[in-house]
Nucleic acid binder design. Structure first.
Lengths: 136, 136
DNA sequence: ATATCATTTCGTTAAGTAACGAATTGATAG
DNA sequence: CTATCAATTCGTTACTTAACGAAATGATAT
């Protein structure tokens, strides 16, 4: 029990994984979308996602060649829901998180196949204000 | 901001530090009492306490040669209160935490000076049920 | 079947961390 | 002022972990 708490807390105690959790608060995402926003090696992101899933914070769904992750919508492990609530309530104004959200908006403006194939280079060079408006 | 969250989460993501936090939910304790219950080197416990304090989870008070630590009663860092609440709500039934509480009761039955000087060997060999009754 | 693409797993490297004993600091007591 | 005692800091060792590129896996599409 103490050990599962430790697992979940450790999962949340990493900036890349926190960014993933905050991204997924907007709904499920494909691995390549997350990889594009975080700008990390695919292997690294995959490992983070696996760790978050082990902690009970994420669920997985396969659709063809693509794998989608989303926040767990039920208690997969004892402490996961509490931590998800805490994370959801926190970091709302963090600049890194805000930047990630903004970048995700641009990623969402491009067909998924292109994001998976080309990553960041699939994004338009000029993020016009017409596209990707802020949430506020 | 993301960084301070990480600091607090990391502080909580360690079994020894969790045990310390749960011990201190019963009120402030002297370092040597905590050391006796955890059965770790003084240096190790001191480092854990310093880390928890840096995270904003603990406050410190000096009284003569003894140093007392307690849970932070105000927001020393942005995310500390949320994590303290989460920890307080969790692990209530954990066997390690329960054992620690039981041992603390025996520690409290001995004068502080003896605990500081002798650690575990200051405890009675036979914890009679008359002393140290459980909280329930 | 073969090729291709997204993801995961493997193996390695560099950085971080928990533990300890030894040495230091800070504070009382003689 | 010296000794003593609690706590902290220092320096070391063993272990864990985040990151990457390369290789393996799983799933379409040709």
């Amino acid at each position: 029990m103490l050990e599962t708490f430790e697992t979940v807390a450790k999962a949340v105690a990493d900036p890349s994984r926190l960014r993933i959790l905050k991204l997924l608060e907007g709904g499920e995402l494909c691995v390549c979308q997350i990889t594009t926003v975080l700008d990390l090696a695919a292997a690294t992101v995959s490992k983070h996602l696996a760790l978050l899933k082990t902690a009970g914070l994420l669920q997985q769904r396969r659709e063809g060649k693509w794998v989608y992750y989303r926040l767990a919508d039920r208690a997969l492990t004892p402490h996961a829901p509490a931590f998800l609530s805490l994370v959801a309530a926190a970091l709302t104004g963090d600049p890194t998180i805000a930047a990630d959200r903004a970048l995700l908006a641009r990623v969402n403006a491009v067909p998924l196949a292109r994001i998976c194939a080309q990553g960041r280079s699939a994004l338009q060079d000029d993020p016009s204000p017409l596209c990707c408006g802020s949430a506020s």
